[in-house]
Simulated assay, not measured.
Amino acid sequence: MEEIVMKQDGEDDEDEEIIFSKLKLLELRSLARLKRFNGHRAIHAPQLQSIRVDSYDHHKHIWMTDLNNTIQHQFMTQEVTSTTQLMVLNAENITRIGDVFPKVRSLSVEIFQDEGVLFPYRSLERFPQLDGLNVEQSSFEEIFPSQDQVIDFMEKIPPFKGLYISNLDKLKSIWKDDSQLPPIHQNLASLEVKNCCNLVKLTPSSASFEKLRSLSVSGCHQLIHLVTSSIAKSLVRLKWLKIKDCKKMEEIVKNETNGDVEGGITFNQLHGIRLIDMLSLKMFSSQSCTFEFPKLEDIEVTGCPQMKKLGRGVLKTPKLSKVKIEGCDMEWENEGDLNKTIEMLSLAKV
């Protein structure tokens, strides 16, 4: 939340005042991104004497006679000097950061909107205990530098485990297309990417995500496939896979070679698959190799009108118990043929 009282469409800026005639104490808690009370109207609170701000470590009382001035002073300062577990880094406060923040576990990098702006990768050195990184509402064309450049940051940038990317309209790639994922990024356990309409590649062509447990991608309309077969083989700990509203995606796993994948592909820990509103999706994979899902318990395929089967090769799903295809729920029997079921239910919807 950035603003408590927001202007509605069609309202004039100076039509009305907001008066809190009896307000004496205002308490603001866990609002790390708050920037103002209201940006369009005069705010009056004649009896207000104190604003209590919860900064995790203590409660601080502050009052500067004006609600907007008080909030802007307190929260813009808190963004830079906070030693709490959550922090916001933006184009306004980055130039004022000169300290190390040993307690910050979650960092949001947002509102870097200048043309050609580069992701402030070096700034991550200041968060040695960083566990989760959010990148939102910015003009970055890529986030992480090449493998050779990352070497310069070894043992300086923390190996964070969660990466959330959202609303980066100009983003084309998350990582440069190097042969391997930099070691400091190989601890990723969760990756979520939303509304990056120009993203053409999710991962480097050849990489390893052996610790990834959750993968979610939505609103990325330039992706033709999700991952290559070599990357899919590295997803040995992946538990949850959700892909939604990627208009051009034709398959989830693409074979980067002309031949079959030797030994097939096994998703050892995958429990659930969600494929939702994928207008161009034809198959999970067009390869004719064997796909094994030894722990897959449920699968949902909804809003995928072109998908007639999961794959061309052999599918092994010994633990599958719940299937939802185009709104039809069913209890699953181990001896059932998932490809035939998808084809039957998809044809029934035509």
Rank of each mutant, 00 (worst) to 15 (best):
P318V: 03
F140E: 05
R41P: 01
D169W: 07
D57I: 08
S82W: 00
E192L: 10
H61Q: 11
W175H: 06
D9K: 13
I71R: 03
R122E: 15
R33Y: 12
I243L: 07
S218T: 04
L223N: 07
E92D: 12
L212A: 08
A42Y: 08
W240E: 02
T302N: 11
S190C: 13
D13E: 14
W175L: 04
G311Y: 00
K60A: 11
K161Y: 14
V323R: 01
Q8H: 14
D152P: 08
V323Y: 04
V88A: 10
Q49A: 05
K340Y: 01
F144H: 04
T77A: 14
F112S: 00
N255Y: 00
L67A: 09
K35V: 10
V80Q: 08
H185Q: 06
E155V: 11
I342K: 00
D260K: 03
Q137G: 10
E3N: 12
L28P: 15
A189I: 12
D114A: 15
C304K: 01
Q49W: 03
D298G: 05
E250M: 14
T84W: 14
I43S: 08
F144E: 02
T83Y: 09
I252R: 00
M1Q: 14
S216P: 00
H185T: 00
F119R: 02
E331L: 09
N268Q: 05
W332K: 06
E125H: 15
F20C: 04
D99Q: 12
N167P: 06
S346K: 07
P46L: 12
S214N: 06
L67S: 05
C328I: 11
K340R: 10
L270D: 02
L199D: 02
M278Q: 09
L279Y: 07
Q269V: 00
L238P: 03
F209L: 15
Q85D: 09
H40T: 09
L320C: 07
T83D: 11
E326C: 01
L191W: 05
L202K: 02
S216T: 11
S206Y: 14
E210V: 14
A45T: 04
G116Y: 11
V117I: 15
I143E: 04
E331G: 05
P294K: 03
Q85N: 13
D178W: 06
K316E: 08
K233F: 01
L107Y: 02
E210S: 14
